[in-house]
Design a protein around this nucleic acid. Structure first.
Length: 570
DNA sequence: TCACCGGGCGCC
DNA sequence: AAAGGGCGCCCGGTGA
């Protein structure tokens, strides 16, 4: 039996080709053409559970999902592993498609990556069956041959990482990133349960009835615009226009530096509160209102389009739909199907815990061994003032220097020298033009060429110094955010495997992931399995801790809720 | 008319 | 005095 199997779908039609591989990527047999790729994949999955090797999940896995009887356990996604390797090798930004990797391997001219498809592409009426081939292979190149060759090369490059521990962590990174590709495709396929009737009711309560003319302003927004105008004694103006708002306030004798809500909150005038409310409601209307519902939440499911590895830190991004920015108030619309429940789990205070584990600061690790890290920190170092403890630690992780934070940072530096030294070293590396990496080896992008050209005289000047400090804040935060993303990906992979292994009557009755947001996961599960799912999440978090951080006293507790409705989770 | 930019704010 | 990291999305405004 083959530990790995390369897979390449035919560009047209349901067939494809397969080839068994060993773990180094060496073929164990000849390529095999199959007329029904889904059936052939399902049969081999049942027999062997190989790690599937493909160019990219969106072209190789997503089209199979509707025709597969069950999920695939493992994959190696060349399109995701390639940029991880390139960055690790100091070649950040090189094209990452299968064709680009293949061309590099063959010494051919390397094609640029195609631009990411945007909303416009999804909306232009094109049949997705005829979407352009995104593999970027040179004419005449055989996709399966390229998949096999590029995979063997990636395995060789991973094996070439000199430090055994770093190599092992990078293997984990590649596996976790690839598991993310499976999860993202499956969430897009299954969708997050979304009650459009509840969403409608919320929108109507907030905005007034749905306008009958598409694009018309909802009643409540129109009313607020008029109330705002009257409160200022102004002529009609557009509250969506920054400049018009500033002018209207100025004419009423209120000088604003901006229209930001935090500035408005300090203005003692009825117009300020009206504008804040207008902006809140307008935001919901334009970003997650009726138009969004029509486009993204039809048929009782919201299908987010995640972009795995879309953020340099390894966080996921989303493409259209705003999956990672759903306003809290709309969580009311996320309701489990009848007989099902939602298990919602989020990692509590993930980033400071990651800092404690990364820096191996014994003192900070002690505060992170129990429940509320900020409370423990406050008791130890801030006379019980939890707000100060939280502010100080966040400031340390983000590189904040403004406000009254200096004394807090000094306290932290005194009490937790290893932790503070860790982030400050990362910041210095960035200020000096260097790169930093996550725990598992995701390397941050280099500074821009313009930055690297700055001389020491430049960076000790005002503008250059600002640029250098901005770069320092980025690398300072990167080591934490990216290592937190490592942990979250490992959690996701471990949880997905556990869910797959839970006993279920059939694939349709199996608990499945429906949402992922940086440090939070949601599983839609038959009600009778909810407790087992909650236990699986906790076990997955513990597994992720062990895999990513090894022997650390730091714990990564989850706050887990079993609910009917997302809004009740916390 | 279109592409791009920055403001502003949603989420972490 | 000000100097908080990462995104996506929509808007108005601007310049080609």
């Amino acid at each position: 039996m083959a530990p790995r199997t390369a897979l390449a779908p035919d560009p047209h039609g349901p067939g494809g080709r397969l080839q068994p591989l060993d773990d180094a990527g060496t073929p164990l047999g000849p390529p095999e053409a199959v007329p029904d790729l889904a059936a052939a994949v399902a049969a081999r999955e049942a027999a062997d559970r190989p790690r599937w090797v493909w160019a990219a999940a969106d072209s190789a896995y997503a089209p199979l999902l509707p025709r597969l009887p069950d999920r695939l356990a493992r994959c190696h996604d060349l399109r995701l592993v390639e940029p991880l390797l390139l960055a690790h090798e100091g070649r950040f930004g090189a094209p990452r498609s299968l064709g680009a990797a293949w061309s590099r391997l063959r010494g051919l001219p390397v094609p640029d990556d195609l631009p990411e498809p945007g909303l416009a592409d999804a909306d232009d009426g094109q049949d997705t069956l005829f979407a352009p081939d995104r593999l970027q292979l040179p004419p005449g190149a055989d996709p399966l041959t390229a998949v096999v060759a590029v995979h063997a090369e990636q395995q060789r490059r991973i094996a070439a990482i000199a430090d055994p521990a770093a190599r092992q962590r990078f293997r984990l990174l590649a596996a976790a990133e690839s598991a993310g590709a499976l999860v993202a495709a499956e969430i897009a396929h299954d969708g997050l349960p979304w009650r459009t009737d509840v969403h409608d009711r919320l929108l109507t309560e907030l905005l007034g009835p749905r306008p009958t003319v598409p694009g018309a302003q909802p009643r409540r927004l129109a009313e607020l615009a008029v109330e705002l105008q009257h409160a200022l004694g102004a002529k009609p103006f557009n509250p969506d226009s920054h400049t018009q708002v500033l002018r209207a306030f100025a004419e009423a004798g209120i000088q604003l530096g901006s229209t930001r809500s935090w500035e408005l909150k300090g203005i003692d005038h009825p117009a300020a509160a009206l504008l804040i409310r207008y902006k809140e409601l307008a935001r919901i209307h334009v970003a997650h209102g009726w138009a969004w519902q029509d486009a993204w939440a039809r048929g009782g499911r919201f299908r987010p389009e995640y972009v795995v590895g879309g953020v340099v830190s390894g966080r996921w991004a989303s493409r259209g739909g705003g999956a990672l920015q759903i306003p809290r108030i709309l969580r009311r619309a996320v309701v489990a199907d009848p007989g099902w429940l939602l298990v919602v789990a989020d990692a509590a205070q993930l980033e400071p815990r990651v800092l404690a584990a990364l820096s191996q600061d014994a003192g900070l690790a002690r505060t992170a061994a129990g429940g509320d890290l900020y409370e423990a920190l406050a008791v130890t170092a801030f006379q019980g003032d939890r707000d100060k403890a939280k502010l100080g630690l966040l400031g340390a992780m983000y590189g904040q220097t403004s406000g009254d934070i200096g004394p807090l940072l000094n306290t932290l530096r005194r009490r937790y020298p290893a932790a503070m030294g860790y982030v400050e070293a990362a910041a210095r590396t960035g200020e000096d033009g260097g790169t930093v990496a996550s725990r598992l080896g995701r390397v941050c992008p280099p500074a821009t060429a313009a930055f690297l050209d700055l001389t020491e005289a430049d960076t000790s000047g005002e503008a250059g110094g600002r640029t250098a400090r901005a770069r320092g804040r980025f690398t300072r935060n990167y080591v934490i955010q990216a290592s937190a993303a490592d942990w979250a990906l490992a959690l996701l992979a471990a949880l997905r495997r556990r869910l797959h292994d839970l006993p279920a009557a059939g694939p349709a009755d199996r608990p499945h992931l429906v949402f992922f947001q940086h440090d939070e996961v949601m599983v839609h599960t038959p009600a009778n399995l909810a407790d087992e799912v909650a236990a699986a999440v906790a076990e997955a978090a513990e597994e992720a801790r062990r895999l990513v951080f090894g022997d650390t006293p730091v714990r990564f507790p989850l706050s887990t809720a079993v609910v009917d409705c997302y809004a009740d989770a916390k």
